[in-house]
Design a protein around this nucleic acid. Structure first.
Lengths: 154, 154
DNA sequence: CTTGATGCAAAGGATTTGCACAAAT
DNA sequence: ATTTGTGCAAATCCTTTGCATCAAG
């Protein structure tokens, strides 16, 4: 059975291999944390991870340490929404654009991922690179507003 | 001598009047904090404010309390760049779009404020409002990359 | 005067670190 | 066997709060 790079196990071995190449050991805890990100496929807080992994006897410090390691190595990306940190897995074939929406009323946070936007943002980035003489590598956008439900009920 | 709304004193009285109308007292400390923002005209961290205002015997708690008050009232806006909080004054005639750039190499943070961008971002926002059925009220964008100098020297 | 604001120090929450033990190479 | 990783608890950093005092309306 050949492993697709896009399957859970394929992605998992990709990241573990990356860690190995950078001189880090592969441990059960690291695998568990990566699995959580791959299975949930959205941004997670340290608290959310701890809730899921504490039953497996993982310590909070281990979660913090590995999240920091993964972030340094480029496996995870830290995002901050309204003062709280969340982490997202960065899949290698995906671009470096992250858009989130937070409802100011109910607090719901949504990932926004749409192709038409990418074109516009690329235009935007070119303007900035030219006018400010910088080289952009990643973009974080957070929108604040009202979600579908709150829009109607306020 | 008539006070222009755009002069330092004009803006200062605008904000103090706003606070007054919302039932808050005008104090020397609040004026000092507002002045710092109006004079520097860029994002400031609590630490930076404290450095400037400690010599005037202002307590750190006062800075935190007033920054929170100003943020609640809509005078200041909190932005988070790479895990650190900064605050910016929101002038009433300005729109609700904030763009920052941080150099991944030297850490330099720059405010980006350009008209051509606003047009593109407005397009972007309309797409999101339609496709996700939300109502947007403000936008935070942070770009990461290399600044003019680091671009050359890396 | 009355109420709200300040400074200080103590408390809180999130994250990091020191250390002894356990797991991976 | 050696090195790195883990769990626990203590330490640290940033921010908030309680309380006595002070200043504004």
């Amino acid at each position: 059975m050949k492993e697709d790079i896009n399957s859970l196990n394929g992605k998992l071995s990709f990241f573990e291999n990356l860690l190995y190449k950078m001189g880090y050991k592969s441990t059960g805890q690291r695998t568990e944390i990566l699995k959580e990100f791959l299975l949930s496929d959205t941004h997670l807080s340290v608290e959310q991870l701890y809730e899921k992994l504490r039953p497996k006897d993982m310590g909070l410090a281990t979660i913090y340490r590995n999240i920091k390691l993964f972030t340094d190595v480029g496996i995870l990306k830290e995002i901050n929404i309204d003062g709280n940190n969340y982490y997202e897995i960065i899949c290698p074939d995906e671009d470096l654009l992250h858009i989130h929406f937070k409802c100011k009323n109910c607090g719901y946070i949504m990932d926004i991922d749409e192709d038409p936007l990418i074109h516009l943002i690329t235009q935007l980035n070119k303007i900035i690179e030219n006018d400010y003489d910088v080289q952009l590598s990643s973009t974080e956008i957070v929108y604040y507003g009202l979600c579908k439900n709150c829009k109607k009920n306020i």
